[in-house]
Amino acid sequence: MRKPIIRLENVWKTYSLGEAKVNALQGLDLEIFPGEFVAVQGPSGSGKSTAVNMIGSLDYPSRGKVYLNGRDITSFSESDLAQLRGQTIGFVFQSFNLLPTLSAIDNVALPMMFQGVSRQKQLSTAREILVRVGLGHRLDNRPGQLSGGEQQRVAIARAMANNPEMILADEPTGNLDSSTGKAIIELLKEVNKEKKTIVMVTHDVKLSREADRTIYLKDGKAVKRL
């Protein structure tokens, strides 16, 4: 059998707000395999973002295990995790999350900078990816000078910068109109064709049909159907 890139095993995530405790995840099990395009669906508050954060090793689970390429990341130090994350996972967020003071090309170069890639290589790779996502003419524009769709393309380009195995997108079309959103999904599908695993949270049932399979979440657990 193929080995999963990511495996979550009985993962719990508990947030405490003063006295009250919120269980965002309650024993979540899931596996993501190389090359898959997986959609994640569920009602608001069901733990989709929390789950994506666990898959992307952005946060430690309160309980349970997370394996990245077979290695238990809960035992990794924060800095080791950051390095590993930078090499293997790219993120795309609903609100783009680009650095406002940097141009498109510098935003895409940033993840490479944190991996110690030479400036020359950073720029040539960033340019190449931006051309591929259709922004060859917007290299030096800052996020404020770009449309929402263009910003999300920059974000996808940034997610691909270190040639990661997997791209995680949490409602990447949430802030975009439907046709721009559709174009973003098309772009992600193209990226998926280059053997990159994609995990995408979306509310839109139509968009989730573009994925190979869908994981449904409810009350912090995976369910068969909603």
């Binding site: 950051a82 993120f91 999350n97 993840p111 944190f114 940034r158």
Partner: peptide
């Protein structure tokens, strides 16, 4: 954001 895209604490 910087940390999400791979910046370590030291960086």
């Amino acid at each position: 954001i910087m940390k999400a895209i791979g910046a370590t604490n030291n960086q």
